[in-house]
Design a protein around this nucleic acid. Structure first.
Lengths: 338, 338
DNA sequence: CTGAAAGCGCTTACAG
DNA sequence: CTGAAAGCGCTTACAG
């Protein structure tokens, strides 16, 4: 039988209310009394029952991370999000549950209705994300990792794509490249239709490249290693003039490097490759080592939880937080030789 | 205000006990009455409050996945575990919380004492895992992904290392290799000391290689891409005679391939590489494509949750479940030419 | 500063 | 087959 507040109260010779007051530090308690209670708690090894507390206080101190079940979008970064969110939750005395559900299902409404969680963090947000109105009409606080088409008034954290792509393009322009192609997500791919990062990165790319008076070339590719290999073949046939490739996502990048090598193309002599939004370790996965812009994934996971908890503590919707990674030059980018 | 059983009972003209009986299908209820109640629930959009149910029934229907906070062991497989476990939990009407804590901390005892979860799944189990006695003395049901030195009486699921390594060695022997080295985890690395997979795979390797009358060569390496690159350099200096490398873990494998290429060594002409326990996608991350034995990670995540839930349903500790991956020949293994 | 009591929304013997 | 009531272990007005 676990030790309850009743046991502590009895041993300390007080009421359970008083025990609760010292536990939550919610009312002044005489030092002497407090001490007796704390001794009793220590003696008995008391630990408060979270479930009873949740029911009585109407706060479960549990938040949910909604993880889209789209296997192809899985990469190392995904786990970083989950773990950094879980760590942030724990740091604030909360728990994190993982809800692996499809973005378009109505499971979210069901889960939210169970009363288990105080708030929700949404990953892989789409431009028109069906989950947002579900949460809004349920009156469930939430924060986004990513953002919708019009995120005004919502709590969100996201990658700063403008800054990210600017770092990439500046790097390539300085090396003399004028024929640059972006490999982005495949718009034919239903899973990622309207998936924010692809849309935003592509928009930023077109804007910036045009500013430099260059032709914006964009090539669509599914988000996996195999498709990256395939892209190496197609790309060099379709657009033999290009001297530099910007890749969104480490899976494609790693596959592309393998594919280019297989085609007998030298990196960076024949073609430069730079990967935006990658984990640090992705850089070492190819030879030559990839030039990457690291993903601020771990930081964003934490920031999203912070934004949510801030709402739960009644501080209202906090300011959006944008973060960008740092460019880590590898050996996959070099001067344009053509 | 959320709809409660009280509201449903009132609308159906019954007591809340009867509502509970139909909800849980726990006592016979007259068809007519049941129907009235079901209509009332539908009309009101009733959803049962999980927290109240948990408190009254002493079952939260939440299980915890303890994820070691050892960043370097992170790879794609980790996320597969988390998500497949979460999916399995949901399939059985349970929730999964993630507890990212160090294996040797005493946080586990604290978390377990909170009464939030009915059971625990342990990942990255060590031979002498400090978490096992903690859970036992707390009377908390648990299941292991992996196993301790003596796992008798415990519920666990694990990789079948004997079968896995046999597939690997048979493949290499058939190609004529006699000088085979295993790259395993670094025993100097405190984080993985006594980490089961490394110990078991190495033991199986030594046993099997000896049976073929070969010299068992084992090389230790930290579990990340960068160290894999480094290993390529050291290995070819230390043991120039070897013709085949068996790698445990995709991170090292990918780094090794990059490193060998960097050294100007051809795979598989100069040296064959095969990776045990990898994700399918790792195969395509290098050129030539890696020969791999896939990890049964997704399956193990599900099986561990099943084993735990079986205990929670009072079925006692279930039989251990061992699984092995399938060998997928790539282009990184070929005939021994020396 | 402390306590008695109601209440959070359910489940579950117990009675009928 | 159905209901009244106790109880799960806390929090929180309310009173003193």
């Amino acid at each position: 039988m676990p030790v309850t507040m009743r046991d502590v109260a009895d041993r300390a010779g007080v009421s359970i209310a008083t025990v609760s007051f010292v536990l939550n530090n919610t009312k002044p308690v005489k030092a002497k009394t407090r001490e007796r209670i704390e001794t009793a708690m220590a003696d008995l090894g008391f630990q408060r029952n979270m479930v009873a507390r949740a029911l009585a206080s109407r706060r479960t101190r549990i938040i949910a991370l909604v993880y889209p079940v789209q296997e192809h979008l899985l990469d190392r970064t995904g786990l970083e999000f989950v773990l950094s969110a879980a760590r942030a939750a724990k740091a604030h005395d909360h728990h994190l549950v993982v809800w692996p559900i499809a973005n378009d299902s109505d499971e979210l409404a069901t889960l939210v209705g169970q009363g288990l969680v105080d708030g929700v963090v949404l990953m892989e947000v789409q431009l028109d994300d069906a989950r947002v109105p579900v949460l809004q009409s349920a009156g469930m606080p939430f924060a986004l990792i990513g953002r919708t088409r019009d995120p005004s008034g919502l709590a969100y954290v996201d990658i700063d794509f403008d800054t990210t792509i600017a770092a990439v393009i500046d790097h390539l322009i300085a090396l003399g490249h004028r024929e640059i192609v972006l490999i982005s997500g495949d718009p034919q791919d239903g899973r990622i239709r309207g998936y924010g990062p692809f849309v935003r990165l592509e928009a930023a790319f077109r804007r910036l490249v045009a500013r430099h008076g260059l032709e914006p070339r964009v090539y669509a590719c599914e988000q996996d290693v195999r498709s990256g290999r395939q892209a190496a073949v197609e790309l060099t046939e379709i657009a033999p003039a290009i001297t530099a490739v910007v890749v969104m996502g480490e899976q494609i990048a790693v596959g592309l490097m393998a594919g280019l090598h297989h085609r007998g193309l030298r990196v960076p002599e024949d073609i430069s490759v730079i990967c935006a939004i990658a984990s640090e370790t992705a850089a070492y996965s190819s030879d030559p080592a990839l030039t990457v812009v690291t993903s601020p994934g771990i930081e964003l996971g934490r920031l999203a939880v912070d934004a949510l908890l801030s709402q739960l503590q009644g501080n209202g919707v906090s300011e959006p937080q944008l973060r960008f990674g740092t460019l880590r030059p590898g050996e996959s980018t070099g001067p344009a030789l053509r």
